[in-house]
Each structure stands twice: as structure tokens, then as C-alpha cells.
Amino acid sequence: MDLSGRTVVVTGAGRGFGRAFALHAGQSGARLFVSARMQAAATKVADEIAADSGARVDAFACDLADPATVRGFAERVAAHTDQVDVLINNGARYLPGPDLWDADDEAIADTVASGATGTLLTAKHFLPLLRRSQGADIVNLVSSVAEVRNHRSEAHPAFYAAKAAQAGFADVLSHRLRPEGIRVISLYPPDFTDGDPLHPTWEHASRTADDPLTARSVLDCVLFAIGQPRDCFIRSFHFEQL
């Protein structure tokens, strides 16, 4: 999909899907703003993007569990551009451990704050820039753990709670922004393999029903959804699991 002339913001871009999407968006001509919890991680990805595609990219530190840094991230992006066309809400802390006692209180609070509150505040503070776009999309990387009675993951209950809250927010936001023509698209993937988007076989690797879901396949779903005509509102992608 050609993203030339479009401004894209990606949270949690330091690794995994966020990094993969940012690299692809750069190759597709987008103007990019990327964030990670640590400035060094965001800068590293920005340097990769610049070296790979020559795309214009700025990198920022943004701790999604800290409201002040979320506001600051949006303000700093607004100093560089007057609109955002695609917001990828990818950042969220993962917390392992099936038992409540597998994590301390601070880790639990941080997980819920980054996955739930962080997504809400990012959407809130970028909404003025999204409203200036001729066709904005908000994409939320949720998780299959947010699906009702999906108990396959060994994630901590706090991660389940964060993703359930994120899903509820995305659902109501989709309904309330549709009259403005802003699409809210949520993906509910199970665990998937990252791969390396800079590896020459990443795009063309043969994928079968016996293989685990890949970041490339999730990325393809996002590109399909945001590439549809503006009368097409795809609210969510759910993935069948064996």
C-alpha cells in the first residue's frame, strides 16, 4: 500500500510489530513519528528506517503508563505536523505469570496503565491532529486475550485486564468517531512470531496453515483495512486458533 503523503504515528515502535510496521510505512513513503518507552530504542528504530528507506522520521520517548509523557509526545508531534493520518496504538507492557502473585503491585499497575490508560490517552491527545486529516485511521493492537473466555495465554491477569479495557474503549470509540469519518480498527491476534522486516525473505516467506501467525500477516491485515475506501469501516480482525 502506498502511504506517500500520509503522516503515521507508531507507539511501541522499538521492537516487534511496532518496529515492523514503522519500517514498512517508511518503505511506503510515509512521514513517521515513532515512540518507545526509552529514547534510545526509539532512536535506534528511526535510524533503521532512515537507512532503509530514507523516510522522514522523528523519534520520541513515551512511557504509556505516564500521562505527562503521553501528552508531551502528542505536543511534540504537533510541533512538527498539523495532522496525523494513521495512529498505530501498539505499545503496551506484557506481563507473564498466570497467578495473581506472580507480579508485584507496581508491575500490575504499570501493565494496566500502559495497555489501557495509555491507549485511551494517546487517542485523546492525538485526536485533534487526526480530526484534521481527510481520512484518519486509529489502529489498536489488542490481543486475543481480550476475547471472551479466551484462556489460552499464560499472561498475567493484569495483562488480560488491560487488554479487555483496551477492547472496550476501542469499541465505543469506533461508534462515536464514525460520524466524523474516523475509522477505529482493532486486531485481536494470538501470540505471533516477529521475524525480521529487514530480512530479504520476510515479505515472501511461504506461510501455511501449519505455521504460527507472523507479524507480516498481522501487518497485512492492517494495510488491507486502512487501504479500503472511506465508506468501508472494518471494526476488528479476529484470528482462528487451534
Rank of each mutant, 00 (worst) to 15 (best):
P98K: 08
P98W: 07
D99R: 07
D99S: 03
D99P: 03
W101R: 12
W101Y: 07
A103V: 00
A103I: 05
E106R: 13
A109V: 15
T111I: 10
T111Q: 13
V112S: 12
G115N: 01
G115F: 04
A116G: 15
A116P: 11
T117H: 13
G118T: 05
G118I: 00
L120W: 09
L120V: 11
T122V: 11
A123K: 00
K124P: 04
K124M: 08
F126Y: 01
F126D: 00
L127R: 00
P128E: 01
P128R: 00
L129Y: 11
L130N: 03
R132P: 14
Q134M: 11
Q134R: 15
D137M: 04
D137V: 07
D137A: 07
I138K: 04
I138C: 11
I138G: 12
V139D: 09
V139P: 13
N140V: 11
L141E: 09
L141Q: 12
L141I: 15
V142A: 07
V142F: 03
S143D: 12
S144C: 07
S144L: 05
S144H: 06
S144N: 01
V145S: 05
A146T: 00
A146L: 04
E147M: 10
E147A: 06
E147Y: 05
V148P: 03
R149P: 12
N150K: 04
N150L: 04
N150D: 13
N150Y: 09
H151R: 15
H151K: 15
S153W: 08
E154I: 08
E154W: 14
E154D: 13
A155D: 12
P157V: 02
P157S: 09
P157F: 09
A158R: 08
A158G: 11
A158K: 10
F159Y: 15
F159K: 08
Y160G: 10
A161Y: 06
A161T: 14
A162R: 02
K163I: 01
A164F: 01
A165R: 01
A165T: 03
Q166S: 00
Q166C: 00
Q166Y: 00
G168M: 00
